[in-house]
Amino acid sequence: MKPFSHGNATSIEEALEALSGMSWPLAGGTDLLALMKEEVAAPERLVNLKTILGLDAIAERQSGNENEWHIGALTTLSALSQTPAFADHLGLRCLVQAAQESASPQLRHMATLGGNLVQRPRCWYFRNRHVPCWRKGGRRCFAFKGENKYHTILGGGPCYAVHPSDPAVALLALNASLLIAGAQGRRVVSLEDFYVMPRPDRQREDGYHPVTILEPNEILTAIVVPEPQANSRSVYVKRTERGAWDFALVSAAASLRLEDDVVKEARIALGGVAAIPWRANAVEEVLIGQPLSPELIEHAAGAAVAEAKPLEHNAYKVDLIKGALRQALQI
């Protein structure tokens, strides 16, 4: 690990003042410190956010006529997965399922929800400092024609690494928003708009091509989840190679509201298939207004992969995501 200096922030304002291109925020550290050990990342200063009080609180608030849940960005995945208000809530439980199925107990104690949403890809080319891949500022993606078993089937390039977060997929299905603090003030962005496909003109000082609109001098402070309407239900289905502690090969989150077995509302998100958590609009269009029959579910699963373009070693993901989505829709 390259040397760096370290400071404890006691307020968001203090932290914002200290952040810049090579002065980075540190939360749980489970991703950042691993990247720094590999020297894939080498910030000159770390601004510890964990010393800011109150950023790990979960609270229900009223917004107009609607209730919404504010989850502080420093909430750990283990605290999130043990929040009864979510675990016992049919409409919100996909978030708890996604948090509970992330990583290992130790990592869930350490990792924060905010950090989980902005973690960097797990692609083996990206994580190898000797490989100058496009995502970290090099010329090309080595996965596209290389070892791409775990890579994308939707959305195309120029980077084919999937976004590794489980909670992001659940939060996309739950129509979550993010509170972002910056020197110019606060802004609210839907999770769907927060993630953007990587592109050449969006690049960090260290060469990294991000897939979020978060600027280096901004801090993600909270995740806001609207209270689902009555009769909503949600589920997160994750497919892994191992039975424990693994990243998703693929995953599916479904948030549905049914009336007399007819789908009134549906938000479907897919993980492990694209460079960002993937909203499956085509699936939602198939579902809404129709009785939730086995035929409809089959039709919906097909719609999820209609645009899929698998790479040489990951065609299995097409069937796998269809199966995950079928299971999510049957619950």
Binding site: H6, L26, G29, T30, L33, A34, L46, N48, K50, S78, S104, P105, Q106, L107, H109, M110
Partner: peptide
């Protein structure tokens, strides 16, 4: 942070000491 051989307990919860800065 992939093997658990460095597991310690910090403030009552298990954590990986290899992915924790001492200064934190």
């Amino acid at each position: 942070g992939q093997c658990g051989a460095c597991t310690v307990i910090i403030d009552g919860e298990t954590a990986y000491a290899c992915l924790t800065l001492a200064v934190d």
